[in-house]
Design a protein around this nucleic acid. Sequence first.
DNA 1: GCGGATCAC
DNA 2: TATGGTGATCCGC
Length: 530
Amino acid sequence: MATGLRFNPHKAGLNSVNEEEATRIILETSKGTEFYKNEERKEKILERRIKEVVELAGTLSDEERKRLEKLIDEQFIAPWEKERDFSRTIVHLDMDAFFASVEELDQPQLKNIPMAVGSTSMLSTANYEARKYGVRSAMPGFIALKLCPKLTIVPPRFHRYCEISNQISSLLFEFDAHPHMSMDEAYLDITEYLRNQDKRIEEVITEIRHKIYDNTGLTCSAGVGCNTLIAKIATDLNKPDGQTIVQPDMISIRKFLDSLSVRKIPGVGKVTEKLLSSLNIVSIRDIIVYRSVLFHCMKRKMFEFLLQSALGIAPCYISDSESRKGMSRERTFKPTSSLEELRSICESVSELLASDLRAEDLQAKTLTVKIKCSDFSARTRAVTTCFLIYRYEQILETSWKLLVKEMPIEIRLLGIRLSGLVSRSESLSCGKNCLEEFISNSLKLKENISNDIYEQVQEFGCITGTEYEKRETNTNQSEMSHTNVCPICLHFRSSNAALLERHANYCIERQEHFMEKAMNAKVKLKKPRR
DNA sequence: GCGGATCAC
DNA sequence: TATGGTGATCCGC
């Protein structure tokens, strides 16, 4: 059966659910739907992946296993252990069923009855009463109603949740001047606080949780460990309204982690869990026992991530407020293939995004369109421009161009993502510039390029070739000193004239939309120069 | 850089 | 009747 359709018991409060029964009801409700068929397609792909991995595991001889174990112990584990830091005290706080608890607070009649926040399409949180029936977050409301016909579904009020979230974070500064906080969870480094106050950890955690309760009426759970990974896993162990402290030494950490399911590791979801179980790796201890198999079968990044997690090795800090990498907006709607309807949706999504972008004073290099078809299959299509995108019209026309290329299909979701973000103040110095400036630069190149290409520059704006294509042609670095630059995008370089021409044509072919703007810009720019 | 996938909340 | 939205990362190409 497809992994995504089976009842998933890994959340707090779901232990006592009759799994067989819940799975039966979920399956019965989903059977035959497009969603279900898509889950089955995904399952098939996953099964192929699993088969490959299992076959690969079969090629590992006992001798090789021994050799790998030695290598892993010496070259990975030993240096990690040497670097590891037991000195910090990290607290992870997690509000219990946050949205649902806030609703109970504001509407006490919802207490003690099964209730969830969301809609008949999708739930974001369920209270513990509802969880007894197998109702959980990320479950469609209409399925939840089959599991629990008495379920009350209330619509979310994000504004209210933010308000309370802010209230909570203001209580935390006392313990850590720089807490890392999301809507319903927080990481605190209380090392300094403990030192200054001369209090026991347990005392402090209790104090924090009481403080939150006294100020908001909401309960939370807490985990304490010497890094964020251990603290987070610990929180989960005593939910709701509980706390777990893991002592900062190797033995306590191993004792704590060993018997837990790999699924407790944040970053291991249902797919990775299934992949690992096909290698007989179910508990966190198994990761260490079968480390040679993992090394042999998994990608290096994944291997290191899993083994470090199993050893309880992770950063002490969540890297502080690193600037965002991208921003996106997406909408789901009644499936349609009508260009007029899609155009109108594209406009409203673009508008939202343009306004988000403006609010943070950012510009973007890459635009990605995401489409989900009525059969739930998804695609993304992206372009990277060599000038910066920031205006509504640019977002709309670029995404529309990408969308129309995919037609005709019936679509149920349209998303637009902007990435490669540059703040407007930085954009002056980063070598990228807005469309008008870009055209101006292109025109300045006149003396250096052939007439043919110059005409093209006059006519077109551009979209760069792919990084992949660049790498393909950049193998001989020593030739770089005598390269010519692509007159269209100003980024691609090559000393091979044929390649350069091919690339330039590629650039030109992909920029139709900007032609008009480029020509307008040309007129504006040329006049003052005379 | 692009596209598909996975994951968390 | 009906299965979300946002942000991030990894892998193969």
